[in-house]
Structure formats: structure tokens, C-alpha cells
């Protein structure tokens, strides 16, 4: 971290565990609390909370686990959710509202409606997704302040 980042940026990092449904959302809850302590505008906090929670749930239910990294800078919040596989076969299809590969168990818990990725995209100012089938997926979201 260079001198400038040390003075202006805050970095948070969270491990997200596969299938740990009871603890899913703890990282997003923590991020929301930090943003509130920093006095960030409540509408930005709400959008960030929705998007991070969707990303966190996705890592829990669809992947082998991963991590979420948050960089808070004076002019933006950058969230990166990176998982350890299995990756998405067809990103265009995954981005369609209603498309889901979630299991019946996940659906019974109230998720897997195929709204997660479109909702993340709509909540942030910039949205990037990269995935390699067999390796993993990285979603990056930027929220302007």
C-alpha cells in the first residue's frame, strides 16, 4: 500500500465459506456497519449492502468458497468477490433475469430466483464479471461517492 492509499483508503477482506448458509451475510452486514460509521450517504449504503449481500450469497451457494475485498476510497467504493470455482459456462445466460442453476435446497431457503447478478448490476455504477469454467468467477462492482 503506498502512502496515498494509507492516508485515504480503507481495505476490508472477508473469507466466504461454501454452503455456510447460516453465516452467509455476515460479511455484508459488517461492510454495511463500516460504511455507516464512515458517514457514507444512506442511499449508497443501501445499494452497496444489497449488491454485496447478493454477491456473498452467490459465493456461498454456487462456488467452492472465495473472498470478498472492499476498497473504500474518497470518491468510490470498490467491491470484488472472487471465488475458487467452478466458474460460469455462459455469462450472458447467467446475466438473464430468471436464469438460475441453484439447487432445490437453495430455492427452499428463498434464493436462486435468477435475480442475483442482474440485481448486482443494477445496484452499482460499474459492473464487471469474468469467469473461466473450471477455475472461478470474479465480480467487481464500483459505487461512486
Amino acid at each position: 500500500m503506498d502512502e496515498k492509499e494509507k492516508n485515504t483508503g480503507i481495505k476490508l477482506e472477508y473469507e466466504i465459506i461454501k454452503d455456510d448458509f447460516s453465516r452467509a451475510g455476515e460479511a455484508s452486514s459488517n461492510i454495511k456497519r463500516v460504511l455507516r460509521q464512515l458517514g457514507i450517504d444512506s442511499s449508497v449504503i443501501r445499494k452497496t449492502a444489497i449488491a454485496t449481500y447478493e454477491a456473498e450469497i452467490n459465493v456461498v451457494i454456487h462456488s467452492e468458497g472465495g473472498k470478498m475485498v472492499v476498497n473504500i476510497e474518497p470518491d468510490k467504493i470498490e467491491i470484488t468477490a472472487k471465488d475458487n470455482g467452478p466458474g460460469i459456462k455462459d455469462i450472458d445466460q447467467a446475466m438473464q433475469k430468471g436464469f438460475s442453476t441453484a439447487s432445490q435446497k437453495v430455492r427452499e431457503l428463498g434464493f436462486g430466483a435468477g435475480m442475483g447478478l442482474p440485481n448486482m448490476k443494477r445496484s452499482c455504477d460499474e459492473f464487471y464479471i469474468e469467469s473461466e469454467f473450471g477455475k472461478g468467477t470474479t465480480v467487481k462492482m464500483i459505487f461512486k461517492l
Partner: peptide, 15 residues
Amino acid sequence: GLTNPQVIRTAEMLD
């Protein structure tokens, strides 16, 4: 009618 912890988490995120 759902009663799992994610209902509370969802409410938390949405205020």
C-alpha cells in the same frame, strides 16, 4: 412464511 436467518439478513440490507 420463511423463518431462516437470511430473512433477517435480507431485511437488514434493505433497511
